[in-house]
């Protein structure tokens, strides 16, 4: 029962408020006018905004894929290390979180700027001669997002791989499976829950990211998180901002529900 109250007060009530506001209208000076209209949702289908959603989904998908490609070998290595080392590696993954995300994003700006650390290192070994322009581009945003969310991929993957029964893998080798088959037909299916949990934990926050595109992308282009922030804080159109937030949330929930449905069907 206390859990129910907690959920009600801290989850459903705020969400309900967002939902209700999303049907209202913006007052002339930015307040909320309590009329009922679907205008905010219709407005959202504007091709202009659709392009922002598409961009955000694409960037979030790219972030997820890169995190998975980097995170899987890393998680595998950690899970297979001696127990004492596992704790050390996991600790190292968590330590960056002790510093505020904003500060770490600023650090990346220093690394990526045209004559920053990255450039200095590459030019000292003679790999580049002219300044490299990575900062303030989509590449920089991708680097920032991957950096920020990689631990969310590694931790669930680690949990899944750590539980993986080694004897099953050994059996596959004994049956002359190639390295690729062992991975594709034994390791991956058995760690799939971890892969999916990791992908969701990376994908969902990346779609709504707004600090990274602002700082590393130089605010040259918007992601849906920036659009929501812009509607709330600059245009002061809370109803429209609420509608976008709600639609985004619905999209993610539908995605998860569809996945869950497919999963249970397969399981049966």
């Amino acid at each position: 029962m206390p859990a129910l109250v907690w959920m009600g007060v801290f989850l459903f009530l705020p969400l309900l408020l967002v939902l209700v506001i999303s049907f209202a209208a913006r007052g002339t000076y930015g307040g909320v006018e309590w009329t009922f209209s679907l205008a905010n949702y219709l407005n959202m289908a504007d091709p202009l905004y659709l392009r922002i959603y598409a961009r955000s989904l694409a960037l979030a998908a790219a972030t997820t894929v890169v995190c998975l490609l980097l995170g899987f070998p890393l998680a595998y290595y950690i899970a297979r290390a001696p127990a004492r080392w596992q704790a050390v590696w996991l600790m190292l993954i968590i330590i960056p979180f002790w510093t505020n995300f904003l500060v770490r994003t600023y650090a990346w700006m220093f690394i990526l700027r045209s004559e920053g650390l990255f450039h200095t290192v590459l030019s000292s070994v003679g790999l580049v001669t002219s300044p490299i322009e990575i900062l303030y581009s989509d590449t920089a945003v991708l680097i920032g997002l991957v950096y920020g969310y990689l631990p969310f991929m590694v931790l669930p993957l680690y949990a899944a791989i750590e539980r993986l029964d080694r004897s099953v893998v050994e059996a596959a080798w004994d049956l002359y499976a190639s390295g690729w088959s062992v991975f594709w037909r034994v390791v991956l299916p058995l760690t799939k829950p971890g892969v999916i949990a990791g992908c969701l934990l990376v994908f969902i926050p990346s779609v709504g990211a707004f600090i990274t595109p602002d700082l590393l992308g130089g605010a040259r282009s918007m992601m849906v998180g920036n659009l929501i922030q812009h509607e709330y804080l600059v245009v002061r159109d809370w109803p429209f901002g609420s509608a976008i937030s709600f639609a985004l949330m619905a999209l993610v929930l539908v995605g998860i529900a569809v996945y869950f449905k497919v999963e249970t069907k397969v399981a049966v």
Binding site: L90, I94, F97, W98, N100, F101, G148, P151, F152, L155, P156, Y158, A159, A160, E162, R163, P193, G194, I196, A197, P205, E263
Partner: peptide
């Protein structure tokens, strides 16, 4: 299913704590 599996892991307290810390810190 996923979450249940993760949380029954031998390291579940550890992982849960880390994830919470991570999410909060983000």
């Amino acid at each position: 299913l996923t979450l249940r599996q993760i949380t029954t892991s031998s390291n579940r307290t550890w992982i849960a704590a880390l994830l919470c810390a991570a999410i909060l810190a983000c």
